[in-house]
Design a protein around this nucleic acid. Structure first.
Length: 529
RNA sequence: GCCCCCGUAGCUCAGUGGAUAGAGCACAGGUCUCCGGAACCUGGGGCGCAAGUUCGAUUCUUGCCGGGGGCACCA
């Protein structure tokens, strides 16, 4: 695929390099806020000035004079402190549209030189309750990141790690049994709605042991969790049990490996991993003095297991309350002889409910299902990733329901439906998008829209690289807005066949790109609303 | 005390070195003979404070102020 931006910057880079005695110069093109400043502009002359010890203005003029016109430029001018402003010819716009049209729904997809095998661990909530909106944020964010890196050309697996044995799980089983007996959950148990719901569905003797109740309750709880994730359109590839790490001997093997590397020692009756030398705050206990392995022991076994499966990049999607784990996970990887940078932990900030921290004890837990019931899956997924993961998020269900129609997801979906509608109508009249060969000189609204389309490959790439799906959301809003203006001001189904063909092709590209981008955040792109 | 995130318009937020800082909501007022009005247009208003780096800082560095989250031989 030709990069239409690179095609514009290459001649400038060539001219700049010639002035700089052959030193390669990185030319970044930006879209000026002011239309008077051209279609694209570059400040390369300003950045070159200190090195060349000349005024930016004269450098810009030299660059402008040396650019060989390949037919893309309708005008090159020097302005301001030394900006080089480019005005583009219809030729460039035609090629840009032809490029996007040829790629279709694969427009913006990547083919990286270094293809990675990425494991995205997401949600990983233990089966002691329904998926909350906090876990929904984890899942929506993690799944969007997974889709983005896959679109960028990498291999990706989504994995859910859980612990289905131990004290917490037993308390859950005991809570279910208590509900069945018409009693209150035990101290430290689970007072929420889930144990009651499960109690009525299970055919287990009320006098049976807690172990029996737990064994029966956990699969049912998982069924609820899987159903919620399915509603959220999150496809988990692998469900990984912590218990398996212990029973398979993986914990012992990982410990032995770290010990062989000289990073394990005994102190105060416990077994420690020397993580502090690799950036952790302090060393961590693997085997407690009572002989029981810690959760962290399973963690290092799990890291080893993931690498052993061939993944070269491990993503842990964790909430801000787990940020303290980052250093120890990376240090653990180092202790096992792996590159700590291969362990990557994108942290999303906390989710509050009507301004308050969510908690079972507070009794203000909002589940993913409640959110979906209130506003629908599309609005929910859009909402959960529209803000940066570095931003805290508040959920107010009443407000969400009241303002449901204002969710920007509909603005974007409407643009998609509108584009499809126009294409349907054109098809009925026997016309449609074409591959190229247009003569039409695009109007301002068309140029803005095409330039927006040209941004998409870079937006998709950066969103994937930075694990930042909210950039896709921001882009979608802009693309939809540009398309609505284009549609409002200009007639797509124009009488002139050439104009019509060009605009229909652009409309097709917009529809495909909106569809692709929405899919990356797990939102459907309807043909009609 | 140490670590992470945030502070941009009345509200919720985009914007990781460029020219006059954007969007949605809210508020005020406009646009329909026409491809989908869930649309479009106009208006008011903003980078927490202070130094530093730079030709240029909302963006990078440091300090301070304010808010949130962490600092287990818990899971």
């Amino acid at each position: 695929m030709t990069d239409l931006i690179a095609r514009l910057s290459a001649p400038i880079a060539g001219a700049a390099a010639a002035l700089a005695d052959g030193v390669p110069v990185d030319v970044a093109l930006e879209r000026p806020a002011d239309a008077e400043h051209g279609d694209y502009a570059t400040s390369v002359a300003l950045r070159l000035a200190p090195m060349l010890r000349r005024s930016p203005r004269s450098i810009a003029e030299d660059i402008a004079a040396r650019i060989s016109d390949g037919g893309d430029y309708a005008g090159v001018e020097v302005a301001g402190a030394g900006f080089v402003n480019l005005h583009l010819s219809p030729h460039w716009y035609h090629d840009a549209v032809a490029e996007a049209a040829a790629a279709g729904t694969r427009y913006g997809a990547g083919a990286p030189a270094a293809r990675r095998n990425i494991l995205v661990e997401l949600v990983s909530a233990n089966p002691t309750g329904d998926i909350t909106v906090a876990s929904a944020r984890n899942g929506a964010y993690g799944d969007a990141v997974a889709r983005l890196v896959a679109f960028a050309g990498h291999d990706v697996v989504r994995e859910y790690y859980f612990n289905d044995q131990g004290g917490q799980i037993d308390k859950f089983g005991a809570s279910v049994r208590a509900r069945r007996r018409g009693e209150e959950p035990p101290e430290g148990g689970y007072p929420g709605a889930e144990p009651s719901a499960l109690a009525t569905q299970l055919d287990v003797d009320p006098d049976a042991s807690v172990e029996e109740w737990t064994a029966a309750a956990v699969p049912l709880m998982f069924a609820r969790i899987k159903a919620s994730l399915a509603r959220l359109r999150i496809d988990v590839d692998i469900w990984f049990s912590e218990r398996e790490l212990h029973s398979s001997g993986a914990v012992d093997r990982a410990l032995a490996r770290a010990r062989a590397a000289g990073h394990v020692y005994d102190r105060d009756g416990a077994t420690w991993l020397a993580t502090a030398q690799f950036g952790d705050d302090k060393d961590r206990v693997l085997i407690k003095a009572d002989g029981v392995p810690t959760y962290f022991a399973a963690d290092i076994a799990y890291i080893e297991h993931k690498f052993a499966r061939g993944h070269d990049r491990l993503l842990y999607i964790l909430g801000a309350d787990h940020h303290g784990y980052v250093a120890r996970l990376q240090a653990a990887a180092a202790c096992l002889g792996h590159d700590p940078a291969a362990v990557e932990v994108p942290i999303y900030q906390m989710v509050t409910v009507s301004g308050e921290r969510m908690g079972k004890r507070r009794g203000n837990v909002v589940t993913a299902d409640e959110l979906i019931d209130a506003i629908g899956v599309d609005a929910a997924r859009f909402f959960l990733v529209q803000r940066s993961h570095d931003q805290t998020m508040d959920i107010d269900l009443d407000l969400a329901v009241r303002t449901e129609r204002e969710n920007p997801v509909y603005y974007v979906q409407y643009a998609h439906a509108r584009a499809r509608s126009i294409l349907r109508r054109a098809a009925e009249e026997g016309t449609g998008p074409t591959a190229g060969g247009w003569a039409h000189a695009p109007e301002r609204q068309e140029r803005e829209l095409v330039k927006r389309l040209v941004e998409w490959p870079q937006v998709a790439r950066e969103a994937a690289d930075r694990r930042a799906p909210h950039r896709v959301v921001a882009y979608l809003s802009q693309l939809a807005a540009d398309f609505h203006v284009f549609h409002h001001d200009l007639r797509v189904l124009h009488d002139d066949a050439d104009v019509r063909a060009f605009r229909l092709t652009v409309t097709g590209c917009v529809g495909d790109t909106i569809g692709t981008a929405l899919d990356l955040i797990g939102v459907e792109a309807p043909d009609a609303m």
